[in-house]
Design a protein around this nucleic acid. Structure first.
Lengths: 153, 153
DNA sequence: TAGGATGGTCAACGTGGTTGTCCAAAACGT
DNA sequence: ACGTTTTGGACAACCACGTTGACCATCCTA
């Protein structure tokens, strides 16, 4: 055993966190200081096509109420907008505003930049292997993000 | 670019989460269903020598009040005990109970087992490299765990 | 010995999560 | 076509964990 087992999750988490923090540090610099790590995942889950609170909750693995509350905050901050669905008066379509789309696009760019920095450090081949090995071990599973409650609650 | 940049943090997180979930699933099976991922880090931060609320807060990167609240919960669950320091009437020493130590020891064992499973899947050498590369990229930094608030709040 | 630092607690508040309840609108089945 | 179920959304009450600010007791030190 070349490493204590408890170090492995720590390493993974530190890597995860550095990437997320890197993105949000840059986003803050570019005029989005209020965004939390959680929000990035919500943006991703909403996508360019929009969604509804219920569907968002399903994608994130949280209740529709929790998803609704998160959307309240994002709406207040001007990143998403709700419009009633003309096809279905019950539904309220949630879409990213221009500002929201801008964050989504920039986030993707910054993630690519950070990945390139990692590649420059350890070599692109090693990084590819690292990702490939992670997929081998963990599966290619779609992402569930019931993270805040998952960790502490 | 062999992979979208945003997949990298996801892969890391999924790996992290699978390990943590694996440990807590087993701990739940062994009589500790109330423990949350957060608690494992707290146990680790308390250690076999014990600590105080203020010091715990420093180690976890949270306020002394937050650390105190978490300890309240763990005390109620019987995993830690507080005793007044005979040397300093202000301090309250927080130590793991037998039950707490048991969890700490078992967690370490389970992490080792899970790491061994990973090694069996991708090969021990590849796993060692994976960890080594992560250290190269992220640094060997000591762990700060202001995680719950970090993510969402 | 007076004054500052330190450890702990309490209170108020914010955020994100949960469940339970309820209503309006859509979908379904007879 | 009409009653019944399902669905999407909102509201309330509650819990966990975070924050600041205030306060007190104790220890340290100039």
């Amino acid at each position: 055993m070349s490493s204590d087992g408890f170090l492995l999750p720590l390493r993974l988490f530190v890597g995860f966190r550095q990437l997320i923090d890197g993105v949000h540090a840059e986003l803050a610099r570019e005029g989005h200081p209020e965004l939390r790590p959680l929000h990035g995942f919500v943006f991703q889950a909403i996508g360019l096509d929009g969604t509804t609170a219920v569907e968002l909750g399903r994608r994130l693995g949280v209740s529709k109420q929790a998803a609704g509350k998160t959307l309240d905050g994002l709406e207040r901050l001007g990143y998403v907008a709700r419009t009633t669905d003309p096809q279905d008066a019950r539904r309220k379509l949630v879409t990213l505003t221009d500002r929201g789309v801008q964050v989504l696009v920039r986030s993707a760019q910054i993630f690519d930049e950070l990945r390139a920095e990692w590649a420059a450090r350890i070599g692109p081949d090693r990084l590819d292997e690292l990702e490939k090995d992670l997929v081998t071990v963990t599966g290619a599973e779609p992402f569930r993000l019931d993270v805040p409650g998952w960790f502490g609650g």
